[in-house]
Amino acid sequence: MRGIIKSLATTMSTFIRGPVTHGYPSKHRELPERDRAFPLLLWDKDIDEPFCTGCHACERACPVECMTVIMKDNPNHESQDGNSKRRKIVDEFWIDYGRCMRCNICVEVCNFEAIAMNNTWSGHETSVYDRADLVMDLPQLMAQSKSDEIQEWVAD
């Protein structure tokens, strides 16, 4: 009997504790800087083009092969009277979020710091009705970086 009373006392003690839960979805927990949702491409604001040169390094390193990269000659390169130092640039880029296992390897292998893991809630709340909608294309991957929505944390 004493054991049960002790158990009940423990249960009762929660009355004086504050709640530990958050009222999701109306209230969002603050995410740490390193939070890894899904990879995103970053936008070079100085030159107004993506950092990504389409070098395929991430595509080859991805364990689940969920990325597809197509490269093109940069029309904005210095030799074409542009203001960019990138000879090649990304033409098309798809990441299948349905397959990505959020391992951060693509971020680690990128030599141009062109890709980062989304560390905002927009990366977590990605439910869709159709799996095909999880395949993100270049404009979708760029959107958050263009609008300054993500706070960058690129692992070294």
């Binding site: 530990v20 740490p32 390193r34 296992m101 959020r102 391992c103 390897i105 560390n119």
Partner: peptide
């Protein structure tokens, strides 16, 4: 939850730390 929050702050993920 407290432990997993800590893991998230360190590694970025709550379960699949990599």
């Amino acid at each position: 939850e407290a432990l997993i929050d800590l893991f998230e702050e360190i590694s970025g993920d709550r379960m699949m730390y990599a």
